Amino acid sequence: MADIRTTSIEADCFYHIYNRGINGEHIFKSDRNYLFFLKKVSDFLNPVCDVYAYCLMPNHFHLLVKIKSDSELASLVKVLNLDKATETISTGLHSPQNIFSKQFAGVFNSYSQAFNRENKRHGSLIESPFKRKLITSDQYLINAIIYIHQNPEKHGVTDQFLKYNFSSYHSILSDSKTVLKRDEVIELFDNKENFILSHQKTIDFDAEF
């Protein structure tokens, strides 16, 4: 089995991304922290991947993302003036791995600096490198989404995951504006009713938390 810290990031693939605070320390202490992290995810990751699900917990987080296509990543290279737009992005600086990692580092760095200032702390906040698992089938994708949404209950943060505010569960069911791939998620489950029903079964992945 590939090392979950070094699994290659490839274009057009789904990944379960997760990580935690150094030594299991809390990385979110207030509603403002959670909302600021989500904003940074939107700012830095939306250009390079589509977000299908998320859950932010006091000491760790989960994201379910699909990396953009080679052509979309090539456009990003051009927008960011990383180098010549015509250069291949299959390897080196412009590989999906490095483009995504650079943007993800932007989330971590921006959030960590703000958190450290607010809490008068210094040093690293989140473990590195981030952990990721390649999603290899639609059923695995469905199970990963359910698992991510059930995480607050699994870890005893709430007695019912439905009550938890900082996951994508309610955003997927709502009609409010979102950057989540809501329609694509519902299509995976066929409809909203089956999405709700499917979340009533327990999914127990070994995610090392």
Rank of each mutant, 00 (worst) to 15 (best):
F189W: 06
N19M: 04
L197C: 04
H94I: 05
I186K: 05
A11T: 08
D175Y: 13
T202Y: 03
S75D: 15
I89V: 12
K84T: 12
E184L: 13
S71V: 11
V107T: 05
S8V: 12
F130N: 00
I186R: 10
D138I: 07
S90D: 15
A105E: 13
H155W: 05
F108P: 00
I142F: 02
T158P: 02
H26Q: 13
N165A: 12
K66F: 01
E72P: 00
Q150N: 06
F209H: 11
D206H: 09
N194P: 00
V41G: 01
F100W: 13
E72N: 11
Y34H: 13
L63E: 02
K84G: 14
L64N: 08
G156T: 05
F161R: 00
L63W: 12
K154F: 01
I148S: 12
E10C: 08
E127T: 05
H26K: 15
I67H: 01
K78F: 06
I9K: 02
H62G: 08
R182C: 09
F100G: 02
H149V: 01
N59C: 06
G24T: 05
H155D: 06
K163Y: 11
D3H: 07
E153I: 07
F161C: 01
C13N: 14
Y34N: 10
R32G: 02
V107R: 05
E25Q: 14
S75N: 15
I146D: 04
F104N: 01
G92K: 10
N151I: 04
I172L: 15
Y52P: 13
R117I: 06
F161K: 01
A85Y: 12
A53E: 02
D175H: 12
S42V: 03
H122E: 13
S171G: 09
Q150L: 08
Q113S: 14
S75G: 09
N46V: 07
L63A: 03
R132F: 06
I196R: 09
I99A: 01
I17E: 00
Y52V: 09
F108Y: 10
Q200W: 02
Y111N: 02
L56R: 10
F36Q: 12
L134S: 08
L197T: 05
S128F: 01
V107W: 04
N191M: 07
N33V: 11
G21K: 03
D190Q: 14
S167M: 03
H149G: 10
L64I: 12
L197E: 15
I172N: 04
T7G: 02
K84R: 13
A53W: 08
S69H: 07
V77K: 13
F104Y: 15
H94A: 08
T202M: 10
L76C: 04
G92T: 05
V79G: 00
A207F: 14
F195D: 09
D43Y: 11
K66Y: 01
Q113M: 15
F14G: 01
L188P: 01
N165S: 10
K40I: 06
K201R: 12
C55Y: 04
N165P: 02
L80F: 06
D190L: 10
S110I: 03
L141M: 10
I142S: 09
Y34V: 08
S167I: 10
A105D: 09
K163N: 09
H155Q: 07
N23E: 14
F195C: 06
I142D: 04
T88W: 09
L73G: 05
E153Y: 08
Y164F: 03
E127G: 00
S167K: 07
M1S: 12
S176Y: 12
Q200K: 14
P47F: 01
R182H: 10
V48L: 02
I4C: 04
E187V: 01
S30I: 05
